[in-house]
Design a binder for these strands. Structure first.
Lengths: 209, 209
DNA sequence: GTCTATAAACGGATAGAC
DNA sequence: GTCTATCCGTTTATAGAC
């Protein structure tokens, strides 16, 4: 389930109806849109509430607090990455094919760019406990990519590159997409995904031509 | 001069002495260290003042305000990039050599990582006027890299890549370094710079082996 | 140049009516 | 479930003494 344990975490919603789930999803999406644009600290609960046609007190009916809202958005983003990239990619045996799939999938995740950008950029605003949880999940993802590079190296397909630095650099480029990609711009999402993974694969693999 | 027009902009310092310049530089560096770690909005003037062994009111003797301080740091960072990367790189005729130089230089700028990270990540916190000025300078840098890729393409040395997307992706990776690089970590600055530009050059250029 | 004190505004969060 | 009203802490910024 894409929402992870956030409804269970917020005790308000243990017995909540389907409508509440939709409302929560709407709150996350709206908040994410504002947060990604202004930054978490610069975003006030008032702004989020207004965007939802609510007052601040009305918004607090659905969430525990501002930090908890951020954490929920990040868990949501991490769930999406797990579901759309990590889980299917783990099933691919051949490391080269697995790498191609992972890069193309992640670079092409245009629908949830906002949430994933927040996941990448706002970790500092989390509480210590929540930050530990998120960083642990991110570490899984990183290790998966790094392990794939190590496998490729063992097969002699990787250029003369340090797998750790290469993996860090891959994440840098792929997560950077969200900072310049504009859904209403000239560059279509397919082209961006294709070009980015081509650039990365060309840099990572020996003789792709 | 590495400080650009910031002392001239702050009318306080029109007739300031050499000591004042040093003090300003110290303020920028101290503020940058805190801002890059906590984020601009989460950093209070009190924290910055304390780190300088000053009170908040004492700090305000040197600067106009918080936003102005941020702008000055960014101008400083942009001056450094101009001086250390852009100006020398422009003198290189051969586009491949120019690209190699630019990537290696930028990726290897370990001394001013903090300031350059702020330049990359805190644009949203600027006033409209200041943001326009900074974005204009960044656009120059971007166009320089993009133009070099176009030249390489005309020489048939570039892979089948869109120069605009490639340039954006280059910046993504290179600016991303600052988010994971730790000066006290295992990975030395030379190795990081060398590995990053190797990965990028391998992805950009045809048959480097 | 640096301080104490304080103004003025804003933010997150909650109480309690409906 | 949504509102009005309010509490309380924090923040930027300044006034004015030394």
């Amino acid at each position: 389930m894409a929402f992870g344990d956030s409804p269970a975490t917020n005790s308000h919603h243990k017995a909540s109806s389907i409508e509440s789930f939709d409302r929560l999803a709407q709150i996350y999406r709206t908040a994410a849109a504002i947060i990604v644009q202004k930054g978490f600290d610069a975003t006030s609960m008032n702004e989020i509430a207004s965007a939802l046609d609510l007052t601040k007190a009305g918004l607090y009916h659905y969430i525990r607090g501002k930090e908890d809202l951020l954490f929920s958005i990040m868990q949501f983003a991490m769930d999406i990455v797990d579901e759309k990239v990590l889980t299917p990619a783990r099933k691919i045996q051949d490391p080269e094919e697995r790498l191609r799939f992972t890069l193309a999938r992640h670079a092409g995740m245009t629908k949830y760019v906002k949430e994933i950008t927040i996941l990448a950029e706002e970790v500092a605003a989390l509480s210590d406990e929540h930050r530990d949880l998120i960083l642990e999940r991110k570490r899984h993802y990183f290790e998966f990519v790094r392990a794939t590079l190590v496998e490729l190296n063992e097969q002699g397909k990787l250029r003369d590159l340090d797998p750790t630095i290469a993996a860090l650099n891959i994440f840098g480029m792929v997560l950077g997409i969200a900072r310049w990609y504009r859904p209403d711009g000239k560059l279509g999402p397919e082209k961006v995904a294709e070009q980015t993974s081509r650039l990365l694969l060309g840099g990572l693999l020996k003789s792709t031509e």
